[in-house]
Nucleic acid binder design. Structure first.
Lengths: 129, 129
DNA sequence: ATAGAATCTATAGTTACTATAGAGTCAAGT
DNA sequence: ACTTGACTCTATAGTAACTATAGATTCTAT
């Protein structure tokens, strides 16, 4: 199948697919006579792996690490475990940060429920603190 | 005070201060004979306003809007209210997304608690789905 | 006079894409 | 055979909000 088809079935944009290839996350596919990229089911699987990792917010550099490990089935998987544990830590940290944000934003929202002038806006006042 | 001093008291890096100026979030300060930026307390206040907004993850473009409104004290503050409400929505959405992420990452972590080979790694298996 | 610290401008790099321009390829209709 | 439209190609620039660097000036202290 050509790149447009792969894009449809995978849900990744054409540009993203080409970008992943350039970044070394996907193998360079065979080309047609007219230089079009030709993909098979295996390529789709590879792309789906990357997509799944991205849906977990795993950075491309880490995905590269994972892909390299996939080719070394005999090695220890401890670095995979670490990678996921770190990702989980990051997510937890970010959730905490966002909760703090949420609280302050909610307070601000309450500070100016009615329609005022800018001068009297409760939100603007809190922003000046 | 010079930019290094402002950086210290504000907690913003020197580059960030210059960047904010270039982006029009800070007024261009007076310069010394040797072309060094000279700031006063007012400038510090302005920077702190920007910093406070950024701590709420408000994008620079929105901060510009807020700064413009600060100079029009008679106008309605409804756009300020909207801006904060939108920001709150964004934060709430992101928190939800991250909770989903967290759940999946936790499941993955459990899937491979012991030290295995890559081939048998429970995490790698889930990533292939 | 000079060494070291601080500052200046301009430019490039970061992350993960998205968007665009301009050219080439291919299948279907006339 | 020709042309139209859809698809693909490469290369480049743009996005957000900074951070980092190079090379030149300026200032301060000895």
């Amino acid at each position: 199948m050509k790149i447009g088809q792969l894009s449809k079935v995978s849900g990744c944009s054409i540009q993203t697919i080409r970008y992943y290839e350039k970044e070394g996350l996907l193998n360079s596919p065979n080309r047609s006579e007219g230089n079009f990229r030709l993909y098979d089911k295996r390529a789709l699987k590879e792309l789906e792996f990357v997509k799944h990792c991205r849906s977990l917010d795993i950075p491309l550099s880490d995905i590269k690490t994972l892909l390299a490990l996939k080719n070394k089935p005999e090695e220890s998987c401890s670095s995979i475990n670490n990678l996921i544990a770190n990702q989980l830590d990051l997510v937890n940290k970010r959730i905490k940060e966002l909760r703090v944000l949420k609280t302050e934003l909610q307070l601000m929202k309450k500070a100016c429920s009615t329609d005022n002038t800018v001068e009297r806006c409760g939100i603007m006042k809190t922003l000046n603190d």
